[in-house]
Amino acid sequence: MASVRSKVARCVAALAAGALLAGCGPGDSGASNLRFGAIYLDSQGFYAGVKKGIETAAAKDSHLKLLGNNAQGDAAKESSFMSTMVASKVDAIITSAVSATASVPSVAAASKAGIPVICYNTCINDADAKKYVWGYVLSDPYVFGKRLGEQAGKYFTGQKITNPKIAVLNCDFVEVCKERKRGFKDGLKETVPGAQYVADQEGAVVDKATPVAENIITANPNLDAFYAVAGGGTLAGVKAVTTRNRVGKTVVFGSDMTVDIAKALVDGRILKAEIDVPAQTVGKLSYEAARKAANGEKNTSFVIPVQPILYTADDKATNEKWLTEHADGIP
């Protein structure tokens, strides 16, 4: 009777979180199954890729079930999901933390309950992460930004533009984005020290960022380039350049590959370079880390590195190959 009550409580908790936990069906005791929780920061391209990477890796393990939720960038939703996962006693939690500070209590609660937490892409602040997080799957955000900045420098140098006017579409609400931006500026400064940053506004979600980018062009009619720190900003920059008739005059340097971004690279008139962390690889490594943590293994290296990939408009063959390999639309 106690085991039945435990199973009922676990299933009720899963349903309350808005996800069906496999193993709650009739006739399935779930006794031999590991159960992992996975939280995605939002539903944009990168996180869809991470989700696919996690699910593909987990599908190879018949003894593992997943409970997944989308926090939608909301710390309150994230906290609710984490609490549900802790209450249902999952064996590990994979998460991209909404906030370096606001996410600390829920991550700490999971750790204190004996549930290992694996971060990917974003995490809580370093000091607390070292206490409460088993491992962090991460592409160094500074290196990520610096490589793109260096490529932007090559472009401007080739175009003989010594004092380019640049607008940043940022995602500064996430610490990783601040590091990306710092890296970009340092990388560009190495070859184009005269670069001028005429605007720096939030632009992480394409629908919200597009009018922001359009207004920036209106205020800066001689804008040379947008630097988009996230994928939504990349597409917003491309759209704004098109709608404001700046094709051939204003270019975009972007972050995070999606199908639409790859198509813009193949076109090549606006988007000149894109830096990306392979999302499905991040998902796969996050799952593998969770599996090790759930088995009680120690992590010999807190950061589990993922190397970024730089794509340029000049390399159409590689960009077309990317589209072929991601025909399902998931990066």
Rank of each mutant, 00 (worst) to 15 (best):
M1N: 15
R5A: 14
K7R: 15
A9C: 02
A9R: 08
R10F: 03
C11K: 03
V12W: 03
L15V: 14
A19Y: 10
C24E: 11
C24W: 08
C24M: 12
G27E: 15
D28G: 05
S29P: 06
N33H: 15
L34D: 04
Q44T: 14
G45S: 15
Y47G: 03
K52Y: 07
I54P: 00
I54S: 00
T56I: 05
A57F: 02
L67Q: 00
N69C: 12
N69W: 09
A71G: 08
Q72H: 13
A76P: 02
E78F: 04
F81D: 00
M82V: 06
M82W: 00
S83A: 15
T84R: 08
K89V: 02
A97K: 02
V98Q: 00
V107Y: 05
A109W: 03
A113S: 10
I115Q: 09
N121S: 06
T122A: 11
N125H: 05
D126H: 07
K130Q: 14
K131F: 08
Y132N: 02
Y132R: 02
G135M: 15
Y136S: 09
V137L: 01
P141G: 04
V143K: 10
V143H: 08
F156G: 04
G158L: 04
N163V: 11
P164R: 09
K165N: 12
I166Q: 07
R182F: 05
G183Y: 04
G183P: 00
L188C: 12
V192R: 01
P193M: 06
D200Y: 08
E202K: 05
E202L: 04
V206E: 13
A213D: 07
P221L: 12
L223A: 00
F226I: 03
A228Y: 06
V229G: 02
G232N: 12
L235C: 00
V241D: 00
N245M: 07
V247G: 03
D256E: 15
M257E: 01
K263Y: 01
A264E: 06
D267T: 03
I270A: 01
L271C: 05
K272I: 13
K272P: 01
I275L: 10
A279F: 13
A279K: 06
Q280D: 07
V282R: 11
V282E: 07
G283R: 10
G283W: 12
E288D: 15
K292S: 15
N295M: 08
E297L: 11
K298Q: 13
N299M: 12
T312P: 00
A313H: 06
D315E: 14
W322A: 07
T324W: 01
H326A: 05
H326G: 04
A327C: 03
D328K: 10
